[in-house]
Design a protein around this nucleic acid. Sequence first.
DNA 1: GTGGTCTAGACCACA
DNA 2: GTGGTCTAGACCACT
Lengths: 126, 126, 126, 126
Amino acid sequence: MAELFHSSQPIYQQLAERIKKQILRGELTLGEKLPSVRDTGIEVNVNPNTVQRTYRELEAMHIVESRRGQGTFVTDDRVVLDSIREEMKLAVMNEFFQQMYEMGYSNEEIKQGLMEFVNRKGEENR
Amino acid sequence: MAELFHSSQPIYQQLAERIKKQILRGELTLGEKLPSVRDTGIEVNVNPNTVQRTYRELEAMHIVESRRGQGTFVTDDRVVLDSIREEMKLAVMNEFFQQMYEMGYSNEEIKQGLMEFVNRKGEENR
Amino acid sequence: MAELFHSSQPIYQQLAERIKKQILRGELTLGEKLPSVRDTGIEVNVNPNTVQRTYRELEAMHIVESRRGQGTFVTDDRVVLDSIREEMKLAVMNEFFQQMYEMGYSNEEIKQGLMEFVNRKGEENR
Amino acid sequence: MAELFHSSQPIYQQLAERIKKQILRGELTLGEKLPSVRDTGIEVNVNPNTVQRTYRELEAMHIVESRRGQGTFVTDDRVVLDSIREEMKLAVMNEFFQQMYEMGYSNEEIKQGLMEFVNRKGEENR
DNA sequence: GTGGTCTAGACCACA
DNA sequence: GTGGTCTAGACCACT
């Protein structure tokens, strides 16, 4: 079994991140039901309470909606999802630039370095 | 006073990151002496124990070395510093790609999105 | 379709509240027959069991009575209805005062704040 | 011992409400330290985990700030607190009006009913 | 000593 | 069967 979590970040956050991304890239679609807290717990080998904490966090982000007695569902509001995706994309880009900038790279160097990086990646995948 | 630290990451790590970057971008040069644990503590309003821990972490990365009775100094080994810089740059780029990829963006989209982002940033700074 | 229920309160209670108010403000009159459990279920898109539970709660408040084989009817006892209305009005006012008081507002401030509020509301509806 | 909680709402929410109001009405001041999770647990006779859930909720509302190894503190941002107070005041008033309105009372009736209510309350407290 | 995470297990209300 | 709450208790990292 592949190790699913690393230890430097709480499990509930790692799990939330993973599910969030599954939703953002469309692997889980609008309105779809997530597996129950208990089933997910078994699947990723984690206590159901921990899974529930994950679902609670996702609900606070409005990515997911819990309905008592029925289950937990991906939001059916496309607008919310789109805005979250855009927001996250910006955050990731900002973080990247911030980091590079603080290491002393100029905008040009960042651009260039990234191009090389992409191209190298492209070759690797051939 | 502006808030220097956020709460989601240990202060000693945030402080280590900051000093590390100051060194990487040359603000602190090879062999230069860092301020004492006490002085830094006062300056950033943090417990000296915490600063101590920061210096310990930096020493473990070989970015810094402490000399008994003299203080803590930036390493004077340029090679070490260069390799750390390169390593960190790769790590930051990898992290960026990983994140974007997991959100469902293709290499092309990442490249393009980033270009727009840089250009927009360039305009802002005019 | 507009969302009819929020998730923080049981659906059967939300539905009971709604029907109760329809009766209190005379939208459903003394002795009038309520739609069947099944019809209501279809109309508000809810499990008939849940509607059943709603009707049971309303019956326990003596707002409604079910007659075997005939259906569920608004009580025909005006006195009961009046006393429930008065009771609820007092409860709502008490709750309001309690809340404001616990937030640190004095009786005078509550009065004044409320006047402004009403007047502002009046203007909005012009 | 007076009963501190009723059963119809989760303890962690009731506790959060109570502390929130203590802060809003100035009983706990800007930047003040709350008792530790454990101490509060003992005081209100509740499991520390439950208290922590309370503190977490308050932190999510930006009313409170947790600092690792130091404790939990009332926010020191007066602006945040003021806006929360105003927001809550509006919410409470809105809720009140909504309720009365749904029971069939007009704005005038609400105003009048409330005046009587305040005056009666004033007499009681004599 | 402080907050934070996680588990195991019990119990409840809802649908 | 579903989510939600609560407890008891262990363990960890930070200050």
